[in-house]
Design a protein around this nucleic acid. Structure first.
Lengths: 161, 161
DNA sequence: CACTGATTTCACAAACTCGTGAAAGATGCG
DNA sequence: CGCATCTTTCACGAGTTTGTGAAATCAGTG
């Protein structure tokens, strides 16, 4: 029987960070950025300094620098200067999941635009090729709409619960 | 004013294939697989042989072989032997978008499982780290559920329209 | 206004991905 | 059965990506 211990198992947490970061990486997310993301997520502190991140992940300062810059552009991590200290604190955006899901929707937009632009070149409206591309566009439009609604719903649930 | 010509603009179609394949590639999809996918989508023929794909994309037989194998594993493309010919025909799965979206949901499952497995190791239920990871898991569970509903809805709309 | 310590930038090296050509492996046809 | 043709496998090379160390930059502090 597994006990619900009140103490952290640091070793297990470290394994988790590496494991889930790899899963993100397989999906195209930069590896080091993923490791930083989950180091922040599993930290009990509200934020970590670049130095702390480097130490916990055993990575160079340069790698950390690149990763937090990347995460900052995605608005997943915010940088917070600490008054009276040279070190900045990096913390997860509180609505990180909402943000990252929203970002994905920008991708839909550009795929839709590209698809739209080729329809004319695909011959008569009844050509199989044109029908296929039009269906893809329709699917993306559908997803774009519905996902927006979903994210609203999630936000509402969060706020309530 | 752009005319709605009944003839294909092959050059424009070729540019489209390359452009949208690159957009997919940026997002982590193998480049050649994306090119094959869109070559099939924009073909007026119901399917193409490996040879035709190689010719249209100016790629080696080996590259085509790898790409269709990849697309086959994702169930995006089906291979169809042509009776009385050595050539097989590759055609897009008719429900390709449904399929690829469903595949993405497998990813959610494994992320959920990984997150679930670390909760115990994150100390007391009230620790900030544990709360963050639990929220991520909840978000993924939410998405998984809702997306399933969305895909049903899409299928229904398709069948009807 | 130097000094100290943190962070960023830069050039390079290791690892990985991707597509090619060549060789080996299938498969229909005579 | 063996030829002709198409497809897959394999080893290599080009091109990227990714993280490191070192140097440069930046910001508090005495």
């Amino acid at each position: 029987m597994t006990e619900d211990s009140p103490v952290r198992d640091e070793e297990a947490v470290r394994r988790f960070v590496e494991q889930i970061a790899m899963q993100f990486a397989e999906w195209g997310f930069p590896r080091m950025a993923a490791r930083v993301l989950f180091a922040l997520m599993t930290a009990d502190e509200p934020g970590l300094t670049a130095g702390e991140l480097g130490e916990r992940l055993d990575a160079s300062a340069a790698a950390i620098s690149g990763a937090v810059r990347y995460l900052g552009q995605l608005r997943l991590v915010v940088r917070e200067p600490v008054p009276g200290s040279r070190r900045d604190l990096y913390r997860l955006a509180d609505n990180a999941w909402y943000v990252s899901a929203s970002a994905e929707m920008g991708l839909y937009k550009s795929l839709i635009a590209t698809s739209e632009s080729v329809l004319e070149a695909l011959g008569g409206p009844r050509s199989p090729a044109r029908a296929r591309v039009a269906e893809m566009r329709d699917f993306l439009l559908f997803l774009q709409d519905e996902m927006a609604g979903l994210l609203e719903k999630w936000n509402a649930t969060r706020a309530a619960g």
